[in-house]
Write a protein that binds this DNA or RNA. Structure first.
Lengths: 149, 149
DNA sequence: TGGACTTGCCTGCATATGCAGGTAACATCC
DNA sequence: GGATGTTACCTGCATATGCAGGCAAGTCCA
């Protein structure tokens, strides 16, 4: 692209900066659409995952969404404080704590869903339908290849 | 892909979650490679941009790297505290403050460059050279299309 | 010159992110 | 049953991220 002389080892622009930039921009769009519902895209994602995942533990959910468990712990906290999520010790193994949506949590998710859909639509429209699908496929594939052994 | 019944509006899996996940994973790889040099990929990126950008202001640099100026202000702070970067008021317009590398900052950047290169190599190797280039191109294009008017 | 508007940056607030290290609960071997 | 090790989670630390709002410097116009 550019910067040839200064970067001897750079035969390719920084992949990391591109991914992070895009993540910032895309997150911003989703956050704006979800803001009227009082949720961030991160929080909405946690609610959605708990909903489809049938009471996952912190560790299970963290692995599924490829996030550090400590980060997930903290992401869940404001949702617990607002009564959208409960975290109850597993009966069989009291170390594990299982996540579940409350009634209010389910409602909050369903109410915010149009906001998510609007954001998704805006982004996929801006990128083009085909490019969006391709991007998602490439990112999913990239994630698999980048997963630690 | 999946989740059809629960997600009426979802004819495509969430783009945002994919981009964020990938950003987390990729950042982690770069951060690990840069950790011995005492820099995060974010900080390394700021040093690199100041280096090639000839004393940009906070606002200019924030726009160039598509980051909120307030975030950049805070990212710069630890670099200033460590004496790698200086922030001096512009002579012509005392509102703007111009970023510059110190001698120590330049050295720190050059010393850490092999760490960055190793991370870049690991990622581009995992994805495949062609896929990496394609991904960067797609992300650059996506960013343009997603930019606010 | 002085008021009105604009611009550039910063702080306060809240959340996001991951690593190191700690604690409690479980599992295993003797 | 008790020492040892493992597992699941959490807190402390540091940085990352963006919005709202505030302050100071600059611009414009009467």
């Amino acid at each position: 692209m550019s910067l040839p002389a200064q970067f001897p080892a750079m035969n390719l622009p920084c992949i990391c900066s591109r991914v992070r930039r895009t993540a910032r921009r895309v997150s911003q769009i989703y956050d704006r659409h979800l803001e009227p519902y009082g949720l961030t895209i991160s929080q909405f994602g946690v609610l959605a995952q708990i909903r489809i995942g049938g009471s996952p533990s912190i560790g299970e959910l963290a692995e599924r969404i490829v996030m550090d468990p400590t980060t997930l712990t903290r992401s869940v906290r404001p949702l617990r404080q607002r009564g959208l999520v409960v975290l109850t010790p597993d009966a069989r193994d009291r170390r594990t704590r299982r996540l579940a949506l409350t009634e209010a949590g389910l409602v909050a998710f369903q109410v915010a869903l149009p906001g998510w859909a609007a954001a998704q639509h805006e982004v996929s429209r801006a990128l083009g339908e085909d490019a969006s699908k391709m991007l998602v496929l490439r990112l999913d594939e990239a994630l698999v290849r980048l997963s630690p052994p």
